[in-house]
């Protein structure tokens, strides 16, 4: 079947199998490999992307379900001049990543948390990230990074192309 969607601002149409998962569509068809797959049970959040302003686990969405949608992945966050998104910047400053495998999903989920709550407490950040697992950081610096990003103001909870993100 044919699906069309806007991925990181670019409109595209592809012929896919109905069972193709959005995560595999992004990785294999679009060649956007930042989005990772860490589980089979919608548990880890490594595959989190933003679809029509909402964070979703792309391993549990069919590409066909995202037909017509606006999709943003980690690759779509930085500005054209390479300027980092406030959440990306904060993850670097606070050492919010180690091996980096959870990071693309974690960054997208963090944007979702901030969209929902622009100034979350530690506890609220932890609850907002409950669907994202990290084996390396013990979450400590991830929580700090999200709180640091919050200080950048409302842009921290938004993805580019004026797509609103809500949690």
């Amino acid at each position: 079947m044919k699906v069309s969607m806007t991925v990181n601002g670019q409109q595209r149409t592809d012929e896919v199998e109905p069972r193709l998962l959005l995560a595999h569509y992004l990785r294999e068809v679009c060649g956007l490999k930042a989005t990772n797959i860490g589980c089979d049970t919608t548990s880890c959040g490594a595959c989190t992307v933003v679809v029509d302003g909402l964070t979703v686990k792309s391993c549990t969405v069919l590409a066909a379900q995202a037909d017509g949608a606006q999709v943003t992945t980690l690759e779509g966050l930085a500005g054209p001049d390479g300027e980092l998104h406030p959440v990306q910047r904060a993850f670097r400053e606070e050492h919010g990543l180690q091996c980096g495998f959870c990071t693309p999903g974690m960054v997208m989920a963090a944007i979702g948390v901030l969209a929902d709550n622009p100034d979350p407490s530690d506890r609220e950040v932890r609850e907002g990230l409950e669907g994202n697992l990290c084996r390396c950081t013990g979450y400590h610096n991830i929580v700090r990074a999200v709180r640091t990003a919050a200080q950048a103001g409302p842009t921290a909870g938004q993805v580019p192309q004026a797509q609103e993100v809500q949690a």
Partner: peptide, 9 residues
Amino acid sequence: DPLFLTRGA
């Protein structure tokens, strides 16, 4: 990190 955070490892 800049690469890990923009394009992924």
